[in-house]
Amino acid sequence: MVNMKKSLTALVVGVALAAGSIQALAHKEGDFILRVGAAHVNPNDESSNVLGTDDGVTVDSATGLGFSGTWMLTDNWGFEVLAALPFEHDIDGNGSLSGLPIGSTKHLPPTASFQYYPDVGGDSFHPYFGLGVNYTYFFDEEVSPELKAALGTNDVELSLDSSIGIAGQIGADWKIGDNWFINTGVWYVDINTDADVIVNGATATTVDVDIDPWVAMVGFAWRF
C-alpha cells in the first residue's frame, strides 16, 4: 500500500511538472513570431456599372508570398503586422462586357491587427483570432490592348484609389520543432476602390469596385 501511494504521488507530481512545462513553452509575453508562407487572395467582388446598366468588372485571384511579425504583448494578446510581396490581379469585364479584358493592377496590403491567443493546446497547438486595419495601395495599373481597341484609342489609362478597411482573421500554429511551427491563417479584408478609366486625358468613367477578398496563407512560423 505504501509503495502504491508513493507511485501515485510520483505520478501526480510528474503530471503536474509536465503540465507546467507545457504551459511554460506556450507563446509568452515578449516572444516574437515570424510567419512566412504562400498567400492566396480570392476576391469576393462586385462593382458599379462601367458604360451601361448591365455591365461591370471582376477582379481575378492571385497568389504570392506573404509574411507577418507578431509581438506578444502579454501571454494572450499579440500585435501583428502583415505584409506581402506585390500581388498582381487581372481585371475583366462582366455582363455586357463579358469576355473583354480591362487591364491589370498590382497591390500591397499591409495590415496591422491585435490578436487574441486563448489558453488551449499547450505548446503543440496555438489558435488565435485577430481584428485590425488594412491599407491597400494599388500601383502599376495597365490597360489591355482589347480595351484600347474597343475605345478606338491608345491613350487610355487606368487608375485605382488606395483603400482603408477592417480586416478579421483566424489562424493557428502547429509545433514541429522547439521553436518551429506550421502556420495557417485566413483573413477577410474590406477593400474598396474607385477605378478611373482615363481616355485622351479625361476621366471617361469611374467604377466603384468592392473587392473584399478572402485571403488564405499556409507556411511556417519561427518563435524567438
Rank of each mutant, 00 (worst) to 15 (best):
Q115K: 12
G99I: 00
G122E: 10
G78K: 00
E88N: 12
G130E: 00
G185N: 13
S163I: 00
N179H: 15
S104M: 09
A204S: 11
N192L: 07
D194G: 11
L108W: 14
K175N: 09
P110T: 00
K175D: 02
L108V: 15
P145D: 15
G132Y: 04
D90E: 08
H107I: 02
G130K: 02
N183K: 10
G201V: 06
S113H: 02
H107L: 14
D161M: 04
A150C: 02
F181H: 13
H89T: 01
D173A: 06
N183I: 04
Y128M: 00
G78E: 00
I91A: 04
T153G: 10
G132V: 12
A195D: 07
W180Y: 14
D196H: 14
N134C: 05
P118W: 02
V133S: 08
T105P: 08
G152N: 00
A195R: 00
E141A: 13
N183V: 15
N134L: 13
W174G: 08
G152W: 04
G152C: 07
V186H: 11
W174Y: 10
L97T: 06
A195H: 03
I176N: 11
G165E: 00
A167L: 10
V199T: 04
L151I: 06
V156D: 09
G99S: 03
V133M: 14
F129A: 13
V133R: 02
V189F: 01
G93P: 12
N183G: 05
S163R: 11
D140T: 13
T111L: 11
F139S: 00
S113W: 06
H89N: 03
L85G: 08
L160T: 03
D173L: 11
G132C: 03
D90I: 02
I166C: 07
I198S: 06
I198L: 11
L108R: 13
P127I: 00
M72L: 07
L100S: 01
V133E: 03
T105V: 15
A195Q: 14
G122Q: 02
G132D: 10
E142M: 09
A84I: 12
F138Y: 08
F181A: 11
